[in-house]
Amino acid sequence: MKARAFSYFRAATIDQALDAHARAGDDARFIAGGQSLVPALSLRLQAPRLLIDITHIEELRGVRREGGYLRIGALTRHCEMLSEPLIAEFAPLLHAAAPFVAHPAIRNRGTFGGSVALADPASEFPAMTLALDAEIEIAGPSGSRRVKADDFFVELFETALQPGELITAIYVPLFKADQRFAFDELARRRGDYALVGCGMLATCTGERIDDIRISFFSVGNTPTRVKGAEATLIGSRLDAERIAAAQAALEGDLAPPDSDDVPPAMRLHLARVLLGRLLGRLGEGA
């Protein structure tokens, strides 16, 4: 299929981009890596009048430390999650998740900001912003604001972003010496969207878990933190019994959707298996 005809505007600044969007009466889409938008246009699932290319806006680029955070520009590409030393050092969970996102050709173009803005419940990065307690920086007609990842993902493909607003950067708290992380997913083929995926970040004193954030993807309408499971683990040591308790808690945390080939009970089972394996690795100091 071929996309319907549209106009194209290349923005040089954030203001230009916001302005163009407003002037198009919001019948417009920002385009970053295009790895989700272009297929949607080709399938005629979306047919905006105007595409606003944001890939030439310098302010959306770059990865740098800012206070206790790593500021990751919205245009940071998936492949840079693998190659950028600052990410490997200060946001290793993103570095660990990146190889599981699609394939090299897509990682060369797809952007962090685009992935978070789209908020696909099966995507790795949006879920990891939850595990990382990240903050999303948004620019809009009425100025700039920062929204906690916990408040960002609202419903299926629905976020705190208002029409015409732009993600400018994602702020990730710097990884610390007393923290551990783990990531994995169960996908039929390497690079596919997973049947179930999970990432976690724990703060520990010796063997005791002081705090842990666990986030699943491909389990519902949004990326999902499993607070029940987290609660069973906080303040205790990771042993077989605790892990089993956390696995059992998932029943209350998750309500997987019905799909034609993966029944909800099976997805819940897989989530339990994956959680068990990841907590096991976390316990080994992975």
Partner: peptide, 15 residues
């Protein structure tokens, strides 16, 4: 239900 290459899985080199 699965008329796309995202949903109809063909074998890939990794597998």
């Amino acid at each position: 239900m699965n008329g796309s290459l995202a949903d109809y899985l063909v074998p890939m080199p990794m597998e």
